[in-house]
Computed example of a mutant assay.
Amino acid sequence: MKRVTPPDPALSGEAAHFRALEALYAAAPINTLFDSTLEIPSAGIARIRFTIHPDVFHAGGAAHGTSYFKMLDDAAFYAANSLVTDRFLLTTAFNLLLTKPLREGPVVAEGRWVSGHRRVFVAEARLVDADGEEAARGTGTFMRSQIPLATLPGYRTA
């Protein structure tokens, strides 16, 4: 089980929002299935460091596409939601391109906001393996939901 570290009460504004999103990621039940950590270094940028283990392999001995999709979607999502402080975004569409099999080991999902400021956001992400090679990329469309971030377990800015 992952340990959720509460945000530093001395933080405020943008930094507090980023730490609260990181805590929200860590608190999501789905993330107990993945050895992963979210980092939001700045607005519109998100990185997820994770490790591929053999328990996510398909019959061909490499990571199943579900791992690719989850990490690409999450990195793009958090890059976009880093720009929205009041509402949880929802994925409305996601396109992905798988270019290389992922084997056991560390991977980084790099997400980047592309466009949108009000209701709909577009962000992209890519997976980079331990050799620095891109294994996949994707682009997502995300829409503001009616769910206030402040009501979600794990999201705490103070």
Rank of each mutant, 00 (worst) to 15 (best):
W113N: 03
N81P: 09
M1H: 13
A46H: 07
V107L: 07
V56P: 02
A26P: 09
T51C: 07
A10F: 01
F34A: 06
L33K: 06
T66K: 05
L98T: 08
D8Q: 10
G138W: 00
V120G: 02
F69A: 15
A15K: 13
T32N: 14
P7V: 08
A59V: 14
R119Q: 14
I30T: 12
G140M: 10
G116R: 11
S67L: 08
A158Q: 13
G60R: 07
A76P: 10
E134Y: 06
A26G: 10
H117P: 08
E124R: 11
L102F: 01
R112F: 05
D74L: 01
G138T: 05
E104S: 12
A26W: 07
D73R: 01
G111E: 01
F69N: 06
I45K: 06
A150I: 14
R144G: 04
M71T: 02
G105V: 06
R118S: 10
F88L: 15
F34G: 01
G154S: 13
D8C: 10
S82M: 02
A136H: 01
R103I: 03
A20I: 03
S42D: 11
H53Q: 05
R119Y: 08
A130H: 12
F69T: 15
I147N: 13
S36G: 14
A62F: 12
L98A: 09
I52V: 15
Y155G: 03
E133S: 14
E124W: 03
L149D: 01
E133I: 08
P41S: 07
D73Y: 04
A63Y: 00
S115I: 09
A62K: 02
R49G: 11
P153Y: 09
Y78R: 01
F18L: 11
D74G: 05
P153D: 14
I52A: 02
A109K: 00
R144A: 12
A23R: 06
D8V: 09
V114M: 09
V128T: 14
G105A: 08
D74Y: 15
A59E: 08
A76H: 07
V107M: 05
F69C: 14
A10N: 12
G116P: 12
F77R: 00
G138R: 01
